[in-house]
Amino acid sequence: MYAFQYHRPQSVADAAALLASDSEAKILAGGHTLLPTMKQRLAGPKTIVDLGHVAELKGITKSGNALVIGAMTTHAEVAGSEVVRGAIPNLARLATMIGDAHVRHRGTIGGSVANNDPAADYPAAVLALNATVVTNKREIKADDFFKGLFSTALQDGEIITRLSFPIPGKFGYAKFAQPASLFALVGVAVAQTGSSARVAVTGAGSSGVFRQTAMEGALGKGWSAQSLAGIATDAGKMMSDIHGDSAYRAHLVGVMAKRAVAQAG
């Protein structure tokens, strides 16, 4: 690790001020992406602003028809939350599928969404559920938030404070894990609100998480796994690596979408 200055603010305002005063400062959330990268000296931020002690970024509430999760809420907290289980049970289940137990004790929803790893699980849920990413500066709709591999609409110094998930009629997530990393080789999240459906795919797309609109159309007409029969995903837009070539990933999108619908009920 390269040396850095360390700050442990107690409030979002203090954190924002620190970030504003130092253009090279990096936010540390749960640390499970940033720290391994720094350990291998693939990243060398000069300043770290650790959000771990900002109490206002934690917590889970149901607010009207929305489930609101603080950015520094860990995956384990989401997985174990009665509020989440009551509102969107399969979102809690998704949280149990991230990394491993130890990772879930530290990794946070805000960190995962901000990092937008193309194989992370949460971005699929955020996109399928049409969630709103709330920052210290504004609210960003999911469709406007994810901008490609490791890229988001967040500006320098902007801090995700919470995520607001409209509570859907149905939600499901199915993941096929990459055997080594346990990240999603393909993960598909499906949501139904009223009669409209949203389908978001992680792990597979060469531009990161994306919506599978043909599947959304089919599920909008009839919410069942069978409705997805014969709907192909363009292999040309899939990633390819030793764990899965683009044809395999495109195929798995179909398989996982059906399983996600079945899980959603």
């Binding site: 055997p179 080594a180 990393s181 990240f183 030793i242 764990h243």
Partner: peptide
Amino acid sequence: LVTASFMDYAM
């Protein structure tokens, strides 16, 4: 080496 960590070499 493509499989240069536990992220790509499946144990």
